[in-house]
């Protein structure tokens, strides 16, 4: 476990609570309603998986929960912030800087920076002193198994390794909320398994509330909870017992 990590909240307590989320997009002259009154909550120490077919509104939900895209209706209470969307853009940026980690399908790493610099950059913007930032970056990279790749740039790394840098970049912040949108879909089975296990660990060992969006049903094995969404509505919400040692066959 990352020695610098603080655990967030008590496992099982609510980390994020959203009510009545509605989001519409304008397409041509008509509006399409992508979220049709979604209630959602996620807890510390748990991996909450959001599953559903493509176009069902999963990503839009994550964007609304994490302060990236303002919903048209509804409210989001996250950690100690009541009604996140009632705050200024600057305050929401600060909330994300302090509390949120993101893992996207793409890796979005700066070509010019080596693994350590990628991770340090965000810490620097958090105001972490340089030496400590380096220490934490190295620890996070070791945690994702890249201890031997600290000085390598993205162009000399595989897709799986790049995604692990992105995870290290998210984890080094010790985020209380970790959002992952299709984190494995650009990866092969083996690398996908490494990534989902790291996310599982972020929940179990760091106490983060991990919200993972996927359309891959095989990832369910690692989840504490699986929420199915279709056409902007939640269909069902099941608790289950995660199996951290589950395996993912190749795609």
């Amino acid at each position: 476990m990352n020695p610098n990590t603080v655990t967030h909240g008590r496992a099982g307590t609510s980390a994020i609570d959203a009510k009545g989320l509605v989001k519409r997009f304008k397409t041509g002259r008509t509006f399409i309603e992508v979220l049709k009154g979604v209630d959602f909550d996620a807890r510390h120490g748990e991996m909450t998986m959001v599953m559903g077919p493509s176009g069902s509104g999963k990503s839009t939900l994550v964007a609304a929960l994490s302060g990236l895209l303002k919903p048209d209706e509804g409210r989001v209470d996250a950690l100690d912030v009541d009604d996140l969307w009632d705050h200024s853009a600057g305050r929401i940026d600060k909330f994300r800087l302090d509390n949120c980690g993101f893992i996207f399908q793409g890796f979005n790493l700066f070509p010019a920076m080596n693994a350590t610099q990628q991770v340090m950059t965000v810490l620097k913007y958090q105001g972490v002193p340089k030496d400590e930032a380096r220490r934490r970056a190295v620890a996070a990279l070791e945690e994702v198994g890249l201890g031997a790749r600290l000085n390598q740039r993205p162009d000399s790394l595989s897709g799986g390794e790049k995604q692990r840098i992105a995870i290290a970049r998210a984890l080094a912040k010790d985020p209380a909320l970790l959002f992952a949108d299709e984190p494995t879909s650009a990866l092969d089975g083996e690398n996908g398994q490494v990534v989902i296990r790291l996310l599982r660990r972020a929940a179990t060992e760091h106490g983060a509330a991990v919200i993972c969006v996927t359309h891959d049903p095989r990832l369910e094995a690692w989840a504490d909870r699986v929420i199915h969404i279709e056409d902007g509505r939640i269909l069902d919400d099941q608790r289950r017992t995660p199996d951290p040692n589950a395996t993912l066959g190749s795609h």
Partner: peptide, 9 residues
């Protein structure tokens, strides 16, 4: 954009 997501202003 990924830095923006992580909260960099």
């Amino acid at each position: 954009a990924s830095l923006r997501a992580l909260g960099v202003s």
